[in-house]
Design a protein around this nucleic acid. Structure first.
Lengths: 191, 191
DNA sequence: TCTTATATTTACTGATCAGTATATTAATAA
DNA sequence: TTATTAATATACTGATCAGTAAATATAAGA
């Protein structure tokens, strides 16, 4: 009951923060949008910052689990999964609920590297990077860490570019680049 | 005199907006920081939005001119300049005044694609992309547009990654990726 | 039934937001 | 000197910000 109200609040906050930004979203608006009264909000979270952190945590959970599942179900070979990262990303970007990356936007508003919101965003990104690095290792890359970092940068650039310049063609171009990088990073095979 | 006050204001606003964000920076703070009184600010700009647009215009001018000059003076061959993009980027990222990209952050706070601030940011990015595309064409890439979009995405990802996960190694990894992409996109040569 | 504890709502706090009206200063012109 | 004009500073507007105190409704226990 009380837990459910909390969940409604966090999920609603996550959506509004994602679409409209953090500084731009007031607590009153959140109360109205989620149907949870302000006092109840402050019973569950001591501050707006705490609520933002909870929203980011939810996003982190849901994004990573659906993203990794999509990649792991999408291809059988490690190399196929490595490339599949860019198919999963394409799905997300080309969907109707894409408004860039919530964590990139969070660091844009909370810039200090020590700020808890910045830290939480960095942790999320490190998880994504670690997932890619795992795939690169399984695929037998000569330097899995390097390849993972390069592919990760490509995903970040793809996300930002799709948001600023428009989605059209971006995912395909990024996937083509990924293919080149992956081929070059795996020990000689003529495929 | 009056023009100079305007310049002081715009430059000061640019710096504060860059370091601390747009929504997080109030007009009072800007007045105090630049030494230009609020009334004078509003004599030169009708609104905060207009001042932000002026600050972005200044940034666009200065960033692009110094960036393109750096690239063009840094290497003689077109192919060298294409790779030199990533040296220029490394200089910027590893400098002490790097707080990610002002335009990426601007679109994070003004998300609607129709918003003038979002539009101005997109125009800046299109200029950067066009510059890279020019280099790719001169270098004789098979598909200059594709290569430019891929390298552009890599620069965006590099910038964001350096800001969120830290600068260490990012520029070198991105440059190595760029080298692979460039080699693959230029018609056969054994170098 | 009455009592007590808990949720929730309403109404508020002081601070700050963007933007402006008024007062004051400074400079020029005669 | 005095009149006029332009630039600046002070002080304000109503709106909204994050956060809270007091009042009301609800529930459970006896």
């Amino acid at each position: 009951m009380s837990a459910s109200k909390r969940d409604i609040l966090v999920r609603g906050a996550m959506n509004v923060f994602y679409r409209e930004g953090f500084n731009a979203t007031g607590m009153d608006k959140l109360a109205k949008e989620t149907g949870v009264s302000k006092m109840t909000m402050y019973k569950h979270f001591r501050s707006k910052e705490d609520l933002i952190l909870a929203a980011l945590r939810l996003r982190d959970d849901e994004f990573l689990s659906s993203f990794t599942r999509l990649v792991e179900e999408g291809a059988k070979t490690p190399k196929g999964r490595l490339l599949g990262v860019f198919d999963a990303l394409a799905d997300w970007i080309e969907g109707r609920d894409f408004y860039s990356c919530m964590f990139i936007k969070a660091t844009s508003e909370y810039q200090s590297p020590e700020h808890p919101i910045h830290v939480a965003s960095a942790e999320h990104k490190r998880k994504v990077l670690a997932f890619i690095q795992g795939l690169a290792g399984e695929a037998g890359a000569k330097n899995p860490k390097l390849l993972a970092r390069q592919l990760f940068m490509l995903t970040e650039g793809e996300t930002v570019t799709a948001f600023i310049l428009g989605k059209s063609g971006v995912a395909a171009d990024a996937k083509a680049a990924a293919k080149v990088l992956i081929e070059a990073a795996l020990p000689g095979q003529n495929t």
